[in-house]
Design a protein around this nucleic acid. Structure first.
Lengths: 337, 337
DNA sequence: CTGAAAGCGCTTACAG
DNA sequence: CTGAAAGCGCTTACAG
């Protein structure tokens, strides 16, 4: 597809590329280019349907007005919504967003970081796999504009936007305890994900501060590659315990949905025989019967803050400094607890 | 962030950029470059952590190994899954995917098409707003590699991948009729979206072939900007009819979820007082109580076929021709009907 | 076996 | 008021 270039316009109006470029970039005034010339060029460029080749422009300017976003799964409604928020903000600020899914793989994450850097992106927002400290450190050491969301590396000082994972989990589990539950299981995912770890800490602290002994057999780790199967096995394992749990805290909304399904299929009454709740939320959790107690993620704030910090780093590198934002969360009590 | 360039390597090893470029692109053999030189360059380029500037490369080669995908909403699980499928396929074929959400706006779609073209993408997959025939025709006339998914323009011959909207709706509504329903309402979205229109046609044909008179007051159009409110109003309107419908066919899964919620809140028993079903599916529709009869979208096949056709156009422009794929769909009968 | 040179489509000091 | 020229980082005929 032949696109018209600056040179084409220059030839058409018998001026130099320089002049055309200046005019099209709104620098006519400061270069004293006559109104007549400006209008003529504008008209012709419109007629020729000109739009600049942004590769050439970025290459020449050394910045692309593009930012990258890497999330684990775009199919996870939480990340999709964060992406939506960031995409909208970006376009209102004249930036383009390129996003991709790392599928929770450190290698994919690495190759995506490299692919994005190769495209000369101006900054990067990552919900990292938590197993890629090397690249994160490299970016940081090069002062590359970077904001981590949802997950960060405690050992590496960066800007990041997260939520109150530990306190949120603490409150939710404490609530279960207040409701009389004593045997509370937790289903999380098998990985070193920081937020999951913090949610587990909150769970543990809630038990401790209620004087309930922590029992590691009550912690189940699902397999990201097989939520369905692994959650089913976890729940079956719980049910076959001599003293089965009477409540389950799921580490995220996807696990909770699967858990709900399994419990239903096993005909376990919720909440009478098993109360359930989870970190994170999704529109359908309130539609289920019983509706599920959950802690919604402030995806709007996460996206907005992350982009604000990133653009600050990009546009005012000298004054900007690392910002760590921890957003508050509030549980929504529904029927499942 | 200073990246190392070909020139940096050339200087480091005292060879020309040409030689480095040839080696790094695996063209050493055909240019008789000595193994020793090759190894030396490879080692140095690794040590210097070189990765080519893909903007420069694309600019020079005139192709970017990048394809664009425009969907209405990445937060719609259907499109997120299609995007996931395409992203995976792309990366396995050495392409990068850039996707963005048009939010069902023709203007956004247009500006995204232009932004993507400006990035010299090699091809484009679009689930179009159906109100942007102008740009689609322009792309087509320039022989730009293009595949439409989910929606297409009947007046413009292009490659596209869609599903059996009309037959699917026909079968589903016929099923409702078989179950004894006579007053069947349809809730669709207020737009000129082709698949929605086809689903409506299927609905209508089912009624006709069962000898049920079509009543346009049974068609409700929800507002994309306010699903919640408009579906609520539609359902309230139905309920206040002298002879309310006894079944509702929702044009997509998002509408069905909202409809389910409203019916519950109005304490309308499903399916005894009101049967419901929808086109499209989502993991949670089977978790609801009653679970919802639906027609799953073959997102895997949509993504795979679309990309296959597109790559064919890109890589063999001379032999490729327009392909129109209509994928079959099968309803899953659940408890809501 | 290797390099100089032109070109991809832009921007931007610099000169007149 | 406007243009020639260099440069961004690559690739690729062409020459030796």
């Amino acid at each position: 597809m032949k696109r018209t270039s600056l040179k084409d316009i220059a030839n058409a109006v018998n001026l130099s590329k320089t002049t055309i470029s200046l005019i099209l970039n709104g620098k006519a005034k400061e270069n004293n280019i006559s109104d007549e010339t400006v209008n003529r060029v504008l008209a012709v460029s419109r007629k020729m349907n000109y739009s600049p080749n942004s590769l050439a422009r970025s290459l020449s300017m050394g910045r692309s007005k593009t930012i990258g976003l890497i999330v684990p799964y775009i199919t996870d409604s939480f990340f999709a919504r964060v992406a939506q928020v960031i995409e909208r903000q970006c376009s209102s600020k004249g930036y383009t967003l390129i996003y991709c899914s790392s599928e929770e793989s450190a290698e994919k994450e690495r190759s995506q970081i490299n692919a994005l850097l190769a495209r000369q992106i101006d900054g990067l927002i990552i919900a990292s796999s938590c197993r890629n400290g090397e690249d994160i450190a490299l970016l940081k050491n090069n002062n590359f504009p970077l904001v981590l969301i949802d997950r960060y590396y405690p050992a590496i000082e960066t800007s990041h936007v997260t939520v109150e994972d530990e306190p949120g989990a603490f409150r939710l589990v404490s609530y279960l305890i207040d409701r009389g539950h004593r045997r509370i299981a937790m289903v999380s995912v098998s990985s070193e994900l920081l937020p999951i770890d913090n949610r587990q800490k909150g769970y543990r602290r809630a038990l401790e501060s209620a004087g309930i002994e922590y029992d590691e057999r009550m912690i189940f780790e699902a397999d990201n590659a097989d939520h369905e199967g692994s959650v089913r096995r976890s729940i079956d394992a719980m049910l076959s315990m001599s003293e089965p749990p009477d409540a389950i805290f799921f580490a995220n909304h996807l696990l909770a949905a699967v858990g709900f399904k399994v419990l239903k299929s096993r005909e376990i009454a919720i909440p009478s025989r098993m109360a359930i709740c989870c970190f994170g939320d999704s529109s359908y959790l309130e539609l289920l019967e019983p509706s599920i107690t959950a802690i919604p993620m402030p995806f709007e704030a996460i996206g907005n803050e992350a982009l604000r910090i990133l653009l600050d780093q990009i546009e005012s590198p000298e004054t900007s400094c690392y910002e760590q934002i921890v957003l508050p969360v509030t549980e929504i009590i529904r029927q499942s607890t």
